[in-house]
Write a protein that binds this DNA or RNA. Structure first.
Length: 570
RNA sequence: GGCGAGGUAGCUCAGCUGGUUAGAGCGCACGACUCAUAAUCGUGAGGUCGAGAGUUCAAGUCUCUCCCUCGCCA
C-alpha cells in the first residue's frame, strides 16, 4: 500500500468556478484520488480556497461585506459546488485559516535566516480617497508613449510597452476613479529568487515524472532568468507580516502577497485536516517525520505550472528544511467554450453551480474526463456534450444495466439464475476483459484520463457485445439453462462495469452496485482471476433494476441551454 | 506588439525518440437483432495530415518561410 498525497490547484475565493477550472484540476485530481483509493492505497486529497489578495477585498467591498465574512460565504458556496460534483476531498481548507498563517510566517522567517529575503524600499502609488496603495494594474492613465487613454500601470494595452505606474499621465485609481493619488515610499520584503536559480534548475532537471508541458514551462522561466519578487503588499487582508505574534517593525499594515502564501496553503490545509481528523500532517509533508515514502501528485491548469515548478519550489527548497516536494505533476490545457474562452460578462460558458442546476454531477464528470484538455485545448460544445452523454452513459452503460436487469426480472424472477455451463462465449469475454482491464488501470495510473475513459467505455461496450453473442433471449425459448449462464455472466460482468466506473461516475456506479447487492467493502478495483470475477455473484441473490440511470439529453434541452448559456453563436 | 499553444477524417481528439496500406470515439450509410432508455451488435464510406520549400533511402513526426486560430501579458 502506497501513500499518495494529492493536491488540486487552489480555486480563488472570488466566485464560483466554471467548468474549465473544474476540468483542469479539481476533477482529475478527484478521479485519480478515487482510483488510487480503489486500488487500496492510502490517499490524502487536499484542496482549499485561495482567499487573499486585492480581488477578494474588492469583491467584498462591492458586496458591502467584511472580507472575512465574504470569504466565509464564498468558501461555503465553493464547498457546496464541490460536493455537488462529488469531489472527495479529504479536506477542503482555507488559506486564511490559522495553520496557513503560521506556516507562511514560518517560511518567511526561515528564508530570511538563509539570506533569501531582503527588505527593499519601493515607490508605489497611494490612493488617498481609496485609502490604500494601488497594485500596478489598478492604476490607469494616459500612456506617455502613444497617448492611449486607458493604459494600465504595468503596461499599455494599446502600444504594448511596459510601464511603471509613475509613467502614466493623469493617473487615476481604477477602483474609485479618483485622481487624488500620490507616490509614497513603502518597504517590502523580497524573495531573492536569483540566488535560488541553480538549485531550482537542478531540481527541475532531476524531476522525471513531469509531462513535457510542465518541463517546458519551468525551463522557459528559468531560461528567462528568475527575478527577485516582492512577497508583501500594503493590504489589510492577508497573512500578517509577523513572527511569534509580533508584527515586524514598519510592517504593521502589511501582509504577505497572495502568491507567496497560497501554495503554502497545501500544507496549511493538510494541517487543518489533521486537526479535524486527529491525523498527523507532518507525516505527509516532512520527510524527516515519515513523509519519505509519500508520492506527492499535483494537478493544475497550465497557467499555474510556473508557480508549482519554480515559485513554490523556491520557498520549499530555499528553506533547506526537509519538506516534501512534488513528485508527479499533471498539467492541463484549457477547456474552451466553442473554441473561445469562458466569460461571465459575455454569457459564454457554464459555472459549476449552474451546471448542477441542469444535470447531476456524474454527467459532467464523464464528459469532462472523457474529453479532458490533456494534449491540447479542448472545446466544449453542447452538441458534443449531448452525443457523449447519450451514447456512452445512456445507451451503452445505462441501457445495458436496464436491459439485462429487466430481462432477468421477467424471465428469472429477479434473482441471479442458476444453471448452464461456462462456455466459449464466456471464455471470449474473459479474454477481452483481461487485456482491457489492465489497459484501463495503466491509463488511470498514468493520469491519462481521456485514454482511461476510452478504455472504460470499451469495457462497457464489451458487455453489449457479449450479450449479442450469448443472446439469452433466443436461447431462453429452447434452453433456459443456456440462457441462465448468459444472464448470470452478464450480471457478474455488470459488477466489473460499475466498479471501474467508480472513479469517474461514482454515484451512478454506486446505484448499480447497490442494485446488484455488492457490499460497500467489496467495491474495490477488480483484481485477481477474471473467471472468478465473472462468477462471484451468489446464485439466487436478488437483483433489482434501478430507476433509469441516465436520462437522454434531448435536442430541445440543447436549444434551451444554448439560449441560456451561449453556444455556437454566443 | 512580445511570449506561448495549435492548425490531422463532418465534429471532438490520439499519433513517443522520423519507417509497413495515418488511428479512436461521435456523426453518417448499409446490414443484423428484438432482451432493453427507437436502445444494441456488425460492416462500410470518409483525411495525404494549414500552404510552400528543404533535409533524408524514408516526414503528419526534423529545418526554414508564409497564412490562420486560440491564449497569456491585458
Amino acid at each position: 500500500m502506497a501513500r499518495i498525497l494529492i493536491t488540486s490547484a487552489l480555486p480563488y475565493i472570488n466566485g464560483v468556478k466554471h467548468l474549465g477550472n473544474l476540468a483542469g484540476s479539481m476533477l482529475p485530481a478527484d478521479v485519480y484520488a478515487r482510483f488510487q483509493r480503489l486500488r487500496g492505497h492510502d490517499v490524502l486529497y487536499i484542496c482549499a480556497t485561495d482567499e487573499h489578495g486585492t480581488p477578494a477585498e474588492l469583491a467584498a467591498a462591492s458586496s458591502h461585506m467584511d472580507v472575512r465574512a465574504y470569504c466565509d460565504e464564498q468558501h461555503e458556496i465553493q464547498k457546496t459546488a464541490g460536493d455537488g460534483f462529488s469531489l472527495s476531498y479529504d479536506y477542503f481548507g482555507r488559506t486564511s485559516n490559522a495553520p496557513n498563517i503560521e506556516l507562511t510566517q514560518h517560511f518567511a522567517a526561515v528564508l530570511e535566516e538563509k539570506g533569501l529575503i531582503e527588505e527593499r524600499v519601493e515607490h508605489q502609488v497611494f490612493s488617498i480617497d481609496d485609502d490604500r496603495f494601488l497594485p500596478d494594474r489598478y492604476v490607469e492613465g494616459i500612456c506617455p508613449h502613444c497617448g492611449f487613454e486607458r493604459a494600465r500601470g504595468d503596461q499599455c494595452d494599446n502600444c504594448g510597452r511596459l510601464l511603471e505606474p509613475t509613467d502614466l499621465k493623469e493617473p487615476y485609481s481604477k477602483i474609485s476613479g479618483s485622481k487624488n493619488l500620490e507616490v509614497r515610499e513603502t518597504a517590502h520584503l523580497h524573495l531573492i529568487q536569483t540566488k535560488m536559480e541553480a538549485k531550482i534548475r537542478a531540481w527541475v532537471d532531476a524531476s522525471t515524472a513531469w509531462p513535457s508541458l510542465a518541463k517546458s514551462i519551468a525551463y522557459k522561466w528559468l531560461d528567462e532568468g528568475l527575478r527577485d519578487r516582492s512577497i508583501t503588499r500594503d493590504l489589510k487582508w492577508g497573512v500578517p507580516v509577523a513572527k511569534d505574534g509580533v508584527a515586524r517593525p514598519g510592517f504593521e499594515t502589511k501582509v504577505f502577497y497572495v502568491w507567496f502564501d497560497a501554495p503554502i496553503g497545501y500544507i496549511g490545509a493538510t494541517w487543518e485536516w489533521a486537526e479535524a481528523n486527529n491525523g498527523d500532517w507532518e507525516s505527509w509533508w516532512r520527510t524527516d517525520k515519515g513523509a519519505d515514502d509519500v508520492t506527492y501528485v499535483q494537478f493544475m491548469g497550465k497557467d499555474n505550472v510556473a508557480f508549482h515548478t519554480v515559485s513554490f519550489p523556491a520557498t520549499i527548497l530555499g528553506s533547506e528544511e526537509p519538506w516534501k516536494s512534488v513528485d508527479k505533476l499533471k498539467a492541463f490545457n484549457w477547456l474552451t467554450w466553442y473554441g473561445g474562452k469562458f466569460s461571465t460578462s459575455e454569457n459564454r460558458g457554464v459555472f459549476m453551480d449552474q451546471a448542477l442546476d441542469i444535470l447531476p454531477g456524474d454527467y459532467w464528470r464523464w464528459y469532462l474526463t472523457a474529453n479532458a484538455p490533456e494534449g491540447s485545448d479542448s472545446a466544449f460544445t453542447w452538441e458534443h456534450f449531448q452525443s457523449l452523454i447519450n451514447t456512452d452513459l445512456a445507451n451503452v452503460l445505462g441501457n445495458y444495466v436496464n436491459r439485462i436487469l429487466r430481462f432477468n426480472k421477467s424471465r428469472f424472477e429477479g434473482v441471479v439464475p442458476e444453471g448452464g455451463e461456462w462456455g466459449a462465449d464466456e471464455d471470449w469475454l474473459a479474454g477481452e476483459l483481461e487485456t482491457r482491464l489492465k489497459d484501463a488501470a495503466t491509463h488511470f495510473e498514468a493520469m491519462e484520463f481521456r485514454k482511461a475513459a476510452g478504455e472504460v467505455r470499451a469495457i462497457w461496450a464489451l458487455g453489449n457485445e457479449y450479450l449479442t453473442r450469448a443472446e439469452p433471449w433466443t436461447k431462453f425459448k429452447t434452453d433456459p439453462a443456456a440462457a441462465a449462464i448468459g444472464v448470470r455472466t452478464a450480471l457478474n460482468y455488470m459488477t466489473v462495469m460499475a466498479k471501474i466506473a467508480q472513479p469517474v461516475i461514482p454515484n451512478a456506479a454506486a446505484t448499480i452496485l447497490d442494485a446488484l447487492g455488492i457490499a460497500e467493502d467489496a467495491r474495490d478495483w477488480p483484481k485477481g482471476d477474471i473467471r472468478d470475477m465473472l462468477t462471484a455473484l451468489p446464485v439466487g441473490q436478488s437483483v433489482e433494476p434501478p430507476e433509469v440511470l441516465f436520462k437522454k439529453i434531448e435536442d430541445t434541452d440543447v436549444e434551451a441551454w444554448t439560449e441560456r448559456f451561449g453556444g455556437a453563436e454566443g
